[in-house]
């Protein structure tokens, strides 16, 4: 009976734990398979432990160009999308203007459209206006900025909405000019939201495949390289890069969360 009661009390926790397991297991498999030494070209089955892939993470330089292209595009797209999206978020939260409904739907639709639709529509635009030669770095960058802006807007908007407007009023009461109020009060308070938006943009751009494939022409980004390599066999080096990305993310979460967690546990 005690067992049954315990189970009933914790059933939701058990289910949640199993779902977390489902969500996180592939990440562990990615890390685990990075230490594999496959005998053939397919790194799907575990065979032998080795550090070979970690010692040579770019696979003799094969991965250098796709990784650099992805990083370059992700950095530029993040920069432009964060600036454009932050400006829009300020306009929406802090100002009144005509055409709010139109602005909201233009921002919402890119998040609600299937990726393949965005990719093919952009490809049609580029082919009809500029021709095939336009496809490459420029067209990928344009596409990535396009789909990142909306995510920046919602992230910065929620931070702005959660801010106390009294703080800005107080600054004005203390004779700060609008410019001073913005840079000394508003911006520092919104900065974490802008930072989160930039991180999200970077992740979205770096990882994007479908829209990129449609607009890439002959350029090959890191995800596109993986896609092409699936048939030929993915080297364990790809898992090394995947593992490094995961480690950096988890370290980021730890840096952001552990101090807060320690603070609350001391308070208890």
């Amino acid at each position: 009976m005690a067992v049954v009661n315990w189970f009933r009390k914790h059933v939701i926790a058990i289910v949640a734990f199993l779902i977390f397991f489902f969500l996180l297991v592939p990440n562990f498999v990615v890390v685990w398979m990075s230490f594999n030494k496959p005998s053939g070209k397919y790194n799907v089955k575990w065979e032998k432990f080795s550090f070979d892939a970690w010692k040579n993470p770019l696979d003799d330089g094969i991965l250098h160009d796709p990784l650099m292209l992805s990083l370059e595009i992700a950095l530029l797209a993040t920069l432009v999308a964060t600036v454009l999206g932050t400006m829009i978020a300020f306009a929406i939260v802090r100002h009144s203007f005509k055409g709010r409904g139109f602005v909201n739907s233009v921002l919402f639709l890119p998040m609600a459209a299937p990726e393949i639709v965005m990719g093919t529509t952009l490809l049609a635009l580029f082919l009809n206006t500029f021709g095939v030669s336009f496809l490459g770095f420029k067209s990928i960058l344009i596409a990535h900025i396009m789909f990142c802006v909306s995510y920046v807007v919602i992230t910065v908007k929620s931070r702005l909405n959660g801010m106390d407007p009294m703080l800005e009023k107080a600054a004005q009461d203390l004779y700060a000019t609008p410019w001073q109020t913005f840079w000394r009060v508003t911006f520092p308070l919104v900065a974490p939201g802008i930072g989160a938006a930039a991180l999200l943009s970077f992740a979205l751009s770096f990882d994007d495949f479908i829209i990129t494939e449609m607009t890439a022409g002959n350029s090959v980004t890191f995800p596109y390289w993986i896609w092409n390599a699936v048939q030929k066999g993915i080297p364990p080096q790809v898992n090394v890069i995947g593992s490094l990305m995961l480690i950096i993310t988890l370290a980021g979460i730890a840096v952001a969360e552990v101090p807060k967690w320690l603070k609350t546990s001391k308070a208890h």
Binding site: M33, N239, L246
Partner: peptide
Amino acid sequence: APFFTSYLIRTLAWKTI
């Protein structure tokens, strides 16, 4: 967190699983 490792690599992990 899984978002931050390329989703194509994670999808391939299901082939192993």
